[in-house]
Design a protein around this nucleic acid. Structure first.
Lengths: 197, 197
DNA sequence: ACTTCAAGATACAGATCTGTATCTGAAAAC
DNA sequence: GTTTTCAGATACAGATCTGTATCTTGAAGT
């Protein structure tokens, strides 16, 4: 199939971003050279510098892209008919590429942490994720009295999810995919129980 | 004060390790060159290669050193007369350097994750920390019936602590130092309450 | 079809980094 | 006090990486 010039250019950009994501996960942002990225994508450095200012800008783009994707996923999961089962399914689906995915996420976090300009993007992602949890919790406690401020409970759930993903990455054999959901369900159960009592 | 040759050499090693820790936190392991490390420590590359094979070996040493320190701290905190208050104090003390400390920790984690040889060290640290939590929880539930396997509850507490530290690093103004302890206390409270009911 | 234009390849200059090999000066040994 | 030894500095060769400047080729426009 013949591609229009614009399409071809977009495809090149996309391939470069995908190759960069792979290499960043494998060797870290600083460990992957522009040359390696271009080569992995099937091009030379010329294509890279034609599409991005430099590696710094590409990292910014990648972070933007990944943040957007994650926010979309959050929305989809929340709007599912059975959110808990949806999250469970999500964890199972991510299982194969968990290390790659989480490593890249961590690399981007560290990078953003060191660069004032793109740091707000990081903050935005966290805030939205936490707000989503807050709403879910408020809904779950409609009527009942939660054991603490819903925003605080949401922070706990959010941090717990993140921490458990890391543990799952470090001990893939020992920790089941469902642990994340199981743990959150346990918390919600004990919280609602203590609310009734 | 005059130093013996052996002392001087040990001092040099120590300074190089400290300088490396600083730079790894600032720019990442791959972002810090051997030259920069030596310079920050007040030496030249000659001193570096006289004390370490290469950067790879130094990272291994650093990981070993930091792991040991953390394990010591865990022991000290556990054996304190009032562990909870001790942990609270620990969090306050770390507040100033939290970002530097946690960034380095994350960098070392990523590095170990990518190097099969030193990966066991990482696993050891996590295992010991989790075991310590398991014992604490078993003690807390002596007699009562916990809402789940103590090892599972320990995993939750451990992951939650890690996740909250990250959140505290990302939002230093928004999240208080005590949040980590407060959150764990909340969990323990609701768990024991649900155990009584 | 012929011209124009731009995506991507190639070539080049400069910077940086690594690792080794050699040198120097001060502590240790006698 | 002289000799030996070793920690750390200096010098060097090779590799790699970045960014720009120029070239080539195929799509777009007429």
């Amino acid at each position: 199939m013949r591609l229009t010039r614009e399409q071809s250019r977009a495809q090149t950009r996309e391939r470069l971003l995908a190759a960069a994501a792979e290499l960043f996960a494998e060797r870290g942002v600083n460990g992957a050279s522009v040359e390696q990225i271009a080569e992995r994508a099937g091009y030379t450095r010329g294509a890279f510098y034609g599409n991005f200012e430099d590696k710094h800008q590409l990292v910014g783009e990648l972070l933007r892209q990944r943040t957007l994707r994650e926010l979309e996923e959050v929305t989809v999961l929340q709007e599912a008919e059975n959110p808990w089962e949806a999250v469970r399914e999500w964890n199972r689906a991510r299982a194969d590429h968990l290390t790659e995915w989480l490593t890249l996420r961590t690399e981007l976090m560290l990078y953003a942490l060191r660069n004032e300009e793109i740091r707000p993007q990081l903050a935005e992602r966290e805030t939205i994720a936490r707000d989503a949890h807050t709403r879910t919790i408020e809904r779950a406690f409609a009527g009942k009295k939660p054991p603490a401020d819903p925003a605080f409970l949401a922070l706990i759930v959010h941090a717990l999810e993140d921490g458990l993903l890391v543990q799952r990455m470090l001990f893939p054999d020992e920790i089941a995919d469902d642990v994340v959901v199981d743990a959150v369900e346990l918390l919600m159960r004990t919280w609602t129980r203590s609310a009734e009592g």
